[in-house]
């Protein structure tokens, strides 16, 4: 019921336009992964791995099924065509990916930060961004007997 497809950045928009015509009318999820420190799981040999990967899950309602589309995005120019024209529901999801991973979407009507303050620096879900942990000081507690 669940399939995975690998699509190159050049075919990205046309691929989704075709799938939409086919009946995949519902965008379930759009997210991205930063593969800085690990290998891409399940990547076929003919696809060249890049640092970022945009993962889109689309559904069709007439024959319930899920299609996962994985697209490699190079780190030098992390830009992907926006899916807002095909799936208006992608708007918030693409903004989230832009905010947390710093991948831009060409043609997005309002590409601004969505979760973090507008003046935030950096993209926290990238692997080279620290957790931002504050060191906790533990103090010895005086025992009461």
């Amino acid at each position: 019921m669940s399939e995975v497809a690998f699509v190159s950045l050049e075919e990205y928009t046309s691929y989704f336009a075709e799938r939409r015509e086919e009946g995949y009318t519902f965008l379930a999820d759009l997210t991205a992964v930063d593969y800085l420190e690990a290998g891409h799981p399940g990547l076929p040999a003919e696809v060249r791995p890049e640092r970022f990967e945009v993962v889109v899950n689309i559904r069709r309602f007439d024959q319930p099924s899920l299609l996962r589309v994985r697209t490699q995005v190079p780190a030098e120019s992390p830009w992907v065509p926006s899916l807002v024209d095909l799936y208006p529901g992608a708007e918030a999801m693409e903004r989230e990916v832009y905010d947390l991973l710093g991948i831009g979407f060409e043609g997005h009507p309002d590409l601004t930060r969505i979760l973090l303050p507008e003046d935030w620096e950096g993209h926290p879900l990238r692997k080279d961004y620290g957790l931002g942990r504050v060191p906790v000081q533990f103090k010895e507690v005086r025992r009461h007997r």
């Binding site: 620096e121 950096g122 080279d128 961004y129 620290g130 957790l131 931002g132 942990r133 504050v134 060191p135």
Partner: peptide, 9 residues
């Protein structure tokens, strides 16, 4: 304060 301590590593 916490943001100044943490942040980009």
């Amino acid at each position: 304060v916490s943001r100044m301590v943490g942040g980009v590593e």
